[in-house]
Amino acid sequence: MVRAAILGTGCAVPAKVLSNIDLERMVDTTDEWITTRTGITERRIASPGEYTSTFATKAAERALEMAGVSADEIELIIVATVTPDFPFPATACLVQNNIKASRAVAFDISAACSGFLFGLSLAEKMIMTGTIRKAVVIGAEVLSRVVDWSDRNTCCLFGDGSGAVVVGASEDGNGILSTHIHSDGSYWELLHQPGAGNRNPATQKVVDERLMFIQMQGNEVFKLAVRAMEEAANEALEANGVGLADLDLFIPHQANRRIIDAIGKRLGIHPDKIFVNLHKYGNTSAASIPIALDEANRAGHIHPGNLLLLDSFGGGLTWASALIRW
């Protein structure tokens, strides 16, 4: 049976580090307040001249290098992002040009923090149907440019960066066992960026009312995130007839340590099997899971034959999971 397997991983984050101590000098907050409520101690922030495509390109190049795959072999590039370089063209087209993947069709998808798993699901299906043989799926964000740095409740949460995977056809039985993606638009107002789309176009009013920044109802999002991620995780396990004892590593979306701990407790996953790098990067939205996956991979936490569960939740609302035999 042909499956889609992850052949290589890569990530790229800005060099600039913004710590909680730095934030204390910018907004009415403290290191203790942020760490206690989120588990975040620092995040990476893009410098002038660095864009979503900058990090997406570097992450893709590193994934290709690990996979031993040339850009000429890539037939599909998907960039999951809510912070593209431009409304159009797609950031994926910029990445295609940067890595010289001239044979690849390239496009972006917008599913907020679940975007990477949505993209992975799409690439998996195209590989399994024989439409393509190899793809690059990227999650990339520069959220620092849509964060209100005067709002202590949101500015401490987000960071910038990108993660990528090379996905290719495999016939050894290993690979992506299943993906599960969901949306519920009735909750869209809980987490959104009001401007500057065509509902609130780029005008002085949008600037004056600070509509270009992320708005979030944190308590409501928290409750829905825990419930939805638990549901998605169980869906993936049940679809493949495996239990928690079979799981080697759980990589959840890195949004908030309290969310991660709550999901782990509700699922009954031992903390040693949960990969967390939230403290270093904050919430990088669509980049969160692929950055964590690459770090876990390069640190030797993932071995051939391991069973991995990826799980996410984001604005939309969207949620998703994937079960992978490495």
Rank of each mutant, 00 (worst) to 15 (best):
L249W: 02
L244E: 02
A228F: 09
L249R: 02
M229Q: 12
P252W: 01
E230N: 14
N234P: 00
A245H: 14
R227K: 15
N256I: 05
N234K: 14
A225T: 06
E238T: 13
I251W: 08
N256V: 05
V242L: 12
A239C: 10
E235H: 15
R258Q: 13
A232Y: 07
D246P: 10
H253I: 05
E231P: 00
Q254C: 06
R257H: 13
L249A: 10
E238W: 05
G243N: 12
N234C: 11
A236K: 01
A255E: 07
A232R: 08
L244M: 11
R258P: 09
D246F: 03
A228P: 05
A232M: 08
R257M: 14
Q254L: 10
L237Y: 00
A228N: 15
D248H: 02
A239V: 03
I251S: 09
A225Y: 05
N256A: 10
A245E: 15
R227M: 09
N256S: 02
V242D: 02
L237F: 10
V242Q: 06
R258N: 14
I251A: 02
A228L: 06
P252S: 05
M229Y: 09
V242P: 00
A245V: 11
G241Y: 04
P252E: 05
A245C: 11
I251E: 07
G241R: 06
M229A: 07
E231Y: 05
Q254R: 10
G241T: 04
P252L: 10
V242I: 10
L249E: 06
L244W: 00
A232H: 03
R227Q: 12
R227T: 13
D248A: 03
A232P: 02
A233N: 04
V226T: 10
G243P: 06
A245T: 13
Q254Y: 10
N240W: 05
L237N: 00
G241P: 11
L237C: 04
A228Q: 11
A236D: 02
V226G: 01
L249Q: 03
N234I: 09
L244D: 01
D246A: 13
R227S: 14
P252T: 06
A232D: 04
V242R: 12
A239M: 15
L249V: 01
L244V: 11
E231K: 14
A245Y: 08
H253C: 08
E231T: 14
E238P: 02
L247N: 01
G241C: 01
M229T: 14
